[in-house]
Amino acid sequence: MTATWLPTLITASPEEGYDLAVTLSRVAVRKTQPDGEVRARLRQSYDEDFGALIAISHVVATNFRTVAAANDYWRSAG
């Protein structure tokens, strides 16, 4: 069996969960557009676009909600 890049959604803390949510978001972009040169070129169209940056934040927040639920909101707050 091969190793997976995402063995679990379980994290030790909300901060680690947020970092995982960012990673999930970044991996989705890489899987959607595997060509790094294309991603770099496209980045120029949104890196100063506040609407695009807000949309990116929404994607991360959605992924964080998923991670938080998987962690039972960090073992029910305590």
Rank of each mutant, 00 (worst) to 15 (best):
R43H: 13
L20N: 01
W5A: 13
V22Y: 02
R65Y: 14
A3W: 09
F50M: 04
L6C: 10
V27K: 08
S25Y: 06
G78W: 01
T23E: 12
S13R: 04
W74N: 00
R41M: 11
G36R: 10
V67W: 09
F64A: 11
D19M: 03
N63H: 15
V27M: 13
G51D: 09
L53G: 02
L6Q: 15
L24H: 06
G78M: 01
L24I: 12
G17H: 05
I10S: 07
G51P: 00
R26H: 10
R26W: 08
N71K: 06
I54H: 03
G78A: 05
T4A: 09
T11A: 07
R41D: 12
A28K: 08
A52Y: 03
D49Q: 07
A69W: 14
R65F: 14
A68C: 10
T62S: 14
V60G: 02
L42E: 14
E37R: 12
G17M: 04
L6Y: 11
A12L: 01
D35A: 11
V27Y: 10
V22E: 03
D47R: 09
G17S: 10
W5N: 09
E15I: 06
T32L: 13
R41N: 10
T4I: 07
A21T: 06
A21E: 03
A21W: 02
D47I: 13
K31Y: 08
D49E: 08
W74E: 00
R41Y: 12
A69P: 03
G36T: 08
R26L: 12
Y73P: 00
A77T: 07
R30Y: 13
V27H: 11
Q33V: 15
T2A: 14
A61N: 14
S57M: 02
A28Q: 10
A28M: 09
S13L: 03
L20A: 04
L6F: 11
L6P: 03
A40R: 12
Y46D: 06
A40K: 14
K31P: 00
N63M: 04
T32K: 12
T66I: 15
T23N: 05
S13W: 08
G78S: 04
G17R: 02
E15V: 10
T62G: 13
T32H: 13
V59R: 08
W5Y: 12
V59Q: 11
L53W: 00
T23Y: 09
G78N: 03
S57C: 01
A28W: 09
M1N: 04
V60R: 08
E48A: 06
E16M: 05
I56Y: 07
A61C: 06
S76L: 02
P34W: 11
A12C: 00
G78H: 03
E15G: 01
H58E: 12
N71F: 08
A12M: 00
S57R: 08
Y18L: 11
M1S: 07
A52E: 11
R75I: 00
V29N: 02
L42M: 14
L24W: 07
A70W: 13
L24T: 04
D72L: 06
A12V: 01
A21I: 03
P14V: 03
T11C: 13
D49P: 02
L53S: 02
T11P: 01
H58P: 00
G17D: 05
R43I: 07
G51M: 07
S76G: 02
D72H: 09
P14S: 09
Q33Y: 13
S13G: 03
A61S: 14
A70F: 14
N63P: 06
R75E: 02
L42P: 01
